[in-house]
């Protein structure tokens, strides 16, 4: 039986990967074309403020160095084949390999996102459960109102409010700057890092609960109105025990899946939060690359964010595959 399951997961993973691969290639190609057609001159972006001192010959040399003098398709294939070997090119603004910048910043963003993800998942789930159990009471109405309002709240504005209250008024946290000015990156302590993590993480979690909470609420209301909960009540089960035995299982699975499938929004939120709090993560790098025309970095980040979303979706699918007996054991018969 185990073997059958593994084989099915194998096939499933293979199919998923093929689909993802086609999407990823398309994303690479489209982003590449888009960026190549941008009116922003990559050479100017590279040289930055020194533009005035650069003569036409030097421009040509730079263009040649970056391969910018070749036809677009050739450039794409050069870039693509380098990509396959893990070489994402060199960032124009940081003058360092893109892969290096991304991996360094990914760690920062990952810590931020995973914290927010866990917090919002747990709190959102609990809120949804309470709301559904107390359906139509003031608690439920309040939670619903809160969630709908949060869903309409601009993340960056919430971040600004956090800054105003906790950094400016209360002075608990530094205003901006991921690393204290004047301190070398190596000397940054864990405490410093955590200090800079708290506000953006809270901002992201506060915004993130809405989706899980509303979804869990609806799902649990459906479950509580289901025939099998009715029958459980008919057999004398009630209250928390009933929820534990019949509600939780049937609600947690979709909630966890939803949370994994929400990686895309999480990343978007992180972009904004990082910008507000000057947190040195992927999001901030994306904005900077976009603003300053750092083509290799921007391309790398687009691919990285797509991979991130893919992995989230893949885990979501896998969880269903492994945990839901209807799918897991259904395949074996």
């Amino acid at each position: 039986m185990r073997k059958g399951l593994n084989r099915h997961i194998g096939i499933f993973l293979l199919l998923k990967s093929v689909r993802m691969a086609t999407l990823l290639v398309a994303i690479c190609f489209i982003s590449f074309l888009l960026i190549k057609n941008s009116p922003i001159d990559p050479i100017q972006a590279y040289i930055g403020a020194d533009l005035l001192k650069v003569g036409p010959e030097q421009r040509e040399k730079i263009a040649e160095y970056w391969g910018l003098d070749q036809p677009v398709m050739v450039q794409f294939f050069n870039w693509g084949s380098a990509l396959l070997t893990g070489d994402l090119g060199t960032s124009m603004i940081y003058r360092r390999p893109v892969a290096e910048i991304i991996s360094e910043r990914f760690l920062n963003s990952f810590v931020l996102m995973i914290t927010a993800w866990l917090l919002s998942g747990i709190i959102g789930f609990a809120m949804g459960v309470i709301s559904a159990m107390k359906k139509d009471t003031w608690v439920d109405k309040f939670i619903k109102w809160y969630c709908y309002t949060l869903a309409s709240t601009p993340t960056f504005w919430l971040g600004l409010l956090m800054l105003i209250v906790f950094a400016v008024w209360l002075g608990w946290f530094p205003i901006g700057l991921g690393v204290p000015a004047g301190v070398l990156a190596e000397d940054v302590t864990i405490a410093d890092r955590i200090n800079h993590l708290i506000l953006p993480a809270i901002t992201l979690s506060v915004v993130g609960v809405a989706n899980v909470a509303l979804h869990t609420r609806q799902k649990l209301i459906d479950v509580l109105a289901s025939d099998y909960v009715l029958f459980a009540r008919a057999r004398g089960e009630y209250g928390f025990g009933l929820f534990w035995r019949h509600g939780l299982r049937n609600v947690a699975l979709p909630a966890i899946t939803l949370q994994f499938a929400a990686f895309s929004e999480l990343f978007g939120g992180a972009v904004l939060a990082e910008q507000v709090f000057s947190y040195p993560g992927l999001g901030q790098a994306t904005v900077e690359a976009g603003l300053r025309g750092d083509v290799p970095l921007l391309l790398g980040l687009v691919i990285c964010s797509a991979l991130f979303v893919f992995i989230g979706n893949l885990i979501a699918d896998l969880i269903y595959y492994v945990l839901d007996p209807r799918i897991r054991e259904g395949r074996m018969i």
């Binding site: 025939d227 099998y228 029958f231 035995r245 299982r249 049937n250 209807r326």
Partner: peptide, 13 residues
């Protein structure tokens, strides 16, 4: 109670 339909069984238990 003996319920009327099979839906009265918890699908995940």
């Amino acid at each position: 109670l003996v319920p009327q339909s099979v839906n009265y069984l918890d699908p995940l238990m």
